[in-house]
């Protein structure tokens, strides 16, 4: 058993379901993972695979109805979050566990000055004077490299550019020095030069503050450049987990492998103009009425009879490289 003393987050068998008109479905199914102090864990997968619902489940923010966490455990710094009442959870949220979003206006109040919003967030969790909180706010804005922080603190969100708003949201999320930061597609809406700035900033701050980071993205480039460990989700389940090096060097799940082969690379040196990309045939399945067996089977080149009948267990193929595939051992042989 690995040393668990620096474990910040431990998620076991998390299950979150939605009750909708078209039926009940498991948006997150039997998901387990953990995050250490200062570690970055990336969660990747295509639209609708359950990344955001995972994040909302950790924050206990799943809209109920139609959603509900129906099983598992989420332990943050030794505290079981799923059994806290709402008042206790409010003391943890934004304090020990924080979240940033793709769209900063989801967490910024449009009619309140940036500085005041940080002050409010800090005073919610700490008994300090307004002056002390104000100093923290300015310090946070400086930390996220907003120029002229004292002046910016007096501005409203709409007066800032997209990149600046993202920085302000990060400042607010980190103001209480949380043990865990969840970033849900934090740079997806940003231009690539601004994305590079924001990612570099998040990683610097994380190092400085020792925060555990769960980074949700669909961009494998972002994963490769930021994470130490990666989990790949497909249709609500974790289908693979590995260190970032192992995942890119030898993906073991056919889905992960297909995903990696289907992204064009830049620069395309040596690649002839307009080579065809590898395709994963078919489409992402609907979560309602998923097949009994492996959810990827209908799109998988390696699928055998068994794949349709039985869900493959998540097995450890060595060195903590987990994959849920009946044919994981054969994946490398098939291009």
């Amino acid at each position: 058993m690995a040393d668990t003393s620096d474990l910040v987050l431990d998620v076991r068998n998390l299950k979150t379901v939605f009750f909708t008109n078209s039926g009940l479905f498991k948006a997150v199914d039997d998901l387990s993972f953990n995050v250490r102090r200062g570690e970055t864990l990336a969660i990747v997968g295509e639209s609708g695979c359950g990344k955001s619902v995972t994040a909302l489940s950790l924050m206990r923010l799943v809209p109920d109805p139609p959603g509900r966490i129906v099983g598992g455990s989420v332990t943050l710094e030794g505290t079981e979050l799923l059994s806290l009442d709402e008042a206790q959870m409010r003391a943890v949220r934004g304090n020990r566990i924080s979240m940033i979003f793709q769209e900063p206006m989801t967490s910024l109040n449009p009619v309140m000055r940036i500085g005041d919003q940080i002050v409010e967030a800090v005073r919610l969790h700490r008994s300090i004077t307004a002056k002390e909180a104000h100093d923290i706010a300015i310090e946070m804005l400086r930390l996220v490299r907003i120029p002229e922080p004292a002046r910016r603190a007096r501005e409203y969100p709409h007066q800032l550019s997209g990149g600046m708003r993202q920085r302000a949201m990060i400042a607010m999320a980190l103001a209480c020095r949380p043990a865990l930061l969840i970033a849900d597609e934090p740079t997806t809406a940003l231009d690539v030069t601004i994305q590079a700035q924001i990612l570099a900033l998040i990683l610097d701050l994380q190092k400085e503050l020792g925060t555990g980071l769960v980074l949700i993205t669909h961009d494998l480039g972002v994963v490769a450049q930021t994470a130490q460990r990666v989990i790949v989700m497909y249709a609500g389940r974790k289908v693979e987990e590995a260190s970032v090096e192992a995942l890119f060097a030898s993906p073991m799940h056919p889905y992960t492998r297909g995903l990696m082969a289907s992204i064009p690379a830049v620069p395309a040196s040596g690649v002839p103009a307009q080579a065809r990309l590898n395709e994963i045939p078919g489409t992402v399945p609907s979560l309602v009425g998923l097949p009994r067996g492996c959810a990827f089977a209908p799109r998988c080149k390696l699928a055998i009879k068994r794949c349709e009948a039985e869900y493959p267990p998540l097995a450890d193929w060595g060195g903590g490289h987990l994959a849920a595939c009946w044919r994981a051992e054969d994946v490398a042989e098939v291009a």
Binding site: A196, L220, A224, T226
Partner: peptide
């Protein structure tokens, strides 16, 4: 040059993100 350097490369062994320009457009 800055634009190309900002693209995150899908290879964990390749050099890490190095923003070459600050500020916004």
């Amino acid at each position: 040059q800055a634009l190309l350097a900002s693209v995150p490369v899908a290879n964990p062994l390749a050099k890490k993100l190095a923003p070459l320009i600050d500020g916004d457009v």
